[in-house]
Write a protein that binds this DNA or RNA. Structure first.
Length: 597
RNA sequence: GCCCUCAUAGCUCAGACGGUAGAGCACGUUCUUGGUAAGAACGGGGUCAUGGGUUCAAUUCCCAUUGAGGGCUCCA
């Protein structure tokens, strides 16, 4: 990002340039299909702009070249942007043959929402911008003249389908994405970042590093973990389990299916059914594949009378759940149909709640930091009146409890109005990766619905039954998504503690194989993951192979090393650390992984 | 699910007016025994995603299905 820090994007020159570029694109498209184009909206977005059109035919990449060429001509003519405030009647006249614009104008007239559907306080005035032959309904702002757009900073990117107003019941439009920058350099940097992101794509790295795959016969959205990916995941899980144990969690296991009665009681069949798979018939009883683990944990809680002295109870499970996702939304490891949550449920007394939320928030951030993530943004999701179980007081008090805890934690947060799940408000934590991209993993959810519907209780100091409160949380979220994020964050070059192979021993000639095997054996017996590259290739090829596999250390051994029981160490950064005694290298490995043992 | 695009060897991709296919990498064998990012030769490997249709003939054209990619929407 190159915007100035304290300036809002909406106020920046870049925003005007992109907004204006969108208009110029619309003009070019309208000229391409005279009288046949219905224009929708075309705003600037984070790194560019788009415009949605209804067109007589599908656009091709060649069309984009033509449109881009025409845009450069329009820019070259240096047309002025004329701004005018007009009445709704006049606007309807101007856009008489543009049904989408008419709908927008009617929306503006009614007030309350702006042209992009965002709620506004006062009824906005209606304005138009005109450049050359093209007039668009628009509140601006724009650059003063088309010539202010740098033609070398402009590029059209791709075409995609998009529903009018994002509503799948409305017409499907064609959206052209483009980007515009102040300089050719900025554009180049942007394209470089895109390329870098493509290189880090976890689907590509998953194949190249032999971490995981999917398979047509297995089914879409279902992941097969290969030994290398499985190792990374195991290390991550082992580390987390140990931390959970230290933090007072107990481990439980639950089955993958449960009878329909369970899901009726829990409310899932009422609130979550569209994400659940069709039931299985077992001896005339209906069973459902689990979309969540909570009802099982609740039953474990219920298996005994609980005393106030027992609380809080924290049940953790790496539980694999299955949820129906529409085929078009599946994406690598990030959006799948079967995934394993690092799930846990806390049962506590109401008075323990604030402290419990504080603890789990801190625990979450500690774990994420351990994996190398430093920047976070939290979101507090509040009640959705359409989709909410339980009574309003509970929602209010629990939302307040979450907000108070966020305030105490000091991490920045936003409110997501109406985004809560059916059983309670929640905090979602998103993290920023090495490329500054935002990912949602962690979720901490208040749940007062299940204690109620399963009639949970504990015996208080007063000898009477009381209702416990429940927190439902996943820290890494799903292991699948987390691994996807981790792969992209590190571009596949996992830190030593997570690397599936931490070092590879490379014998220079066959006669050094014995020494290589001995080195590997000693490191393995100290608990390190070490391979010997015994293939018939030359040393150079083996080093190249290890580099491409992003193995942290390459240990070259030849005559000199065999004689002195040493290894020559090359790091995957390319740095040659030279020869060192075996013990010295082992100490390096030990210190690399020390914080995680 | 919807719109658009795509599917040829394990991977990345060529290919032909419709006449059953090729490269590089990977894999195997042999030669080479090397000092920090690819040594060489030879070899095995494809029902051209699946099912229909058109045709003398389909991997190629058409339809459907499955899967993948870019979006919309949604979320862990």
């Amino acid at each position: 990002m190159v915007e100035k820090k304290d300036e809002r994007y909406e106020d920046s020159d870049l925003y005007r340039i992109r907004h204006s570029a969108a208009h110029i694109m619309a003009q070019a498209v309208m000229e391409m299909f005279p009288g046949e184009v219905k224009i929708a909206i075309g705003p600037p977005i984070a790194e560019g702009f788009y415009y949605d059109f209804e067109l007589p035919r599908s656009l091709t990449p060649e069309d984009l070249e033509v449109i881009e060429k025409r845009m450069l001509e329009i820019i070259g003519k240096d047309f002025e942007y004329a701004f005018e405030v007009i009445s709704a009647e006049k606007a309807k006249e101007i856009f008489a043959d543009q049904p989408y614009k008419i709908e927008l104008i009617e929306g503006l007239e009614a007030g309350g929402v702006d042209e992009y559907g965002t709620p506004t306080d006062e009824a906005p005035e209606i304005s138009i911008y005109t450049q050359d032959t093209f007039t668009d309904l628009c509140r601006g702002p724009h650059v003063a003249r088309t010539g202010e757009i740098n033609p070398d900073g402009l590029k059209l990117l791709n075409v995609a389908g998009a529903y009018w107003r994002g509503d799948e019941n409305r017409p499907m439009l064609q959206r052209i994405y483009g980007t515009a920058w102040q300089s050719a350099d900025d554009l180049e940097q942007f394209l470089w970042r895109r390329e870098e992101a493509a290189k880090r794509d976890h689907r590509r790295l998953g194949r190249e590093l032999d971490l995981f795959s999917t398979n047509e016969d297995v089914g879409p959205g279902l992941i097969l973990w290969h030994p290398k990916g499985g190792m990374v995941r195991k290390i991550a899980e082992d580390y987390c389990r140990a931390e959970h144990e230290k933090a007072g969690y107990e481990f439980v296991y639950s089955p993958h299916i449960g009878k329909s009665k369970l899901w009726e009681t829990s409310g899932h069949l009422q609130w979550f059914k569209e994400k659940m798979y069709a039931p299985l018939d077992i001896e005339g009883q209906e069973y459902y594949l689990k979309p969540m683990n909570c009802p099982f944990h609740v039953q474990i809680y219920k298996s005994n009378k609980r005393s106030y002295r027992d609380l809080p109870l924290r049940y953790a499970e790496w539980g694999t759940v299955y949820r129906y996702e529409r085929s078009g939304v599946l994406h690598g490891l990030l959006r799948v149909r079967g995934f394993t949550q690092d799930d846990a449920h806390h049962f506590c007394r109401p008075d323990q709640m604030p402290e419990e939320i504080d603890k789990v928030l801190k625990f979450t951030l500690d774990i994420l930091r351990a994996f190398g993530f430093e920047k976070f943004q939290a979101y507090l999701s509040t009640r959705n009146p359409e989709k909410a179980a339980g009574d309003l007081d509970d929602w209010d008090s629990s939302t307040k409890a979450l907000r108070d805890s966020l305030d105490r934690s000091g991490i920045p947060y936003q409110i997501d109005e109406g985004e809560a799940v059916f059983y309670g408000p929640k905090i979602d934590i998103k993290l920023l990766d090495a490329l500054g991209r935002e990912w949602q993993l962690s979720t901490i959810q208040f749940d007062f619905n299940l204690p109620e519907s399963f009639d949970l209780s504990y015996i208080g100091e007063d000898g009477k039954e009381h209702r416990p409160v429940m927190i439902h949380r996943a820290l890494l979220g799903s292991m699948e998504r987390f691994m996807g994020v981790l792969i992209e964050h590190y571009a596949g070059a996992f830190p030593v503690w997570l690397a599936p192979v931490q070092a590879v021993v490379i014998p220079i000639a066959d006669r050094h194989l014995g020494h290589a095997e001995r080195i590997a054996k000693r490191l393995k017996s100290s608990g390190f993951r070490v391979d010997v590259d015994a293939r018939g290739d030359r040393m150079n090829a083996k080093i190249r192979h290890a580099q491409l596999q992003k193995i942290p250390y390459m240990l070259v051994v030849g005559d000199r090393e065999a004689k002195t029981d040493s290894v020559s160490v090359r790091q995957r950064s390319g740095e040659d650390m030279g020869a060192m005694p075996f013990e010295e290298f082992e100490a390096i490995l030990v210190s690399d992984v020390a914080p995680y043992r």
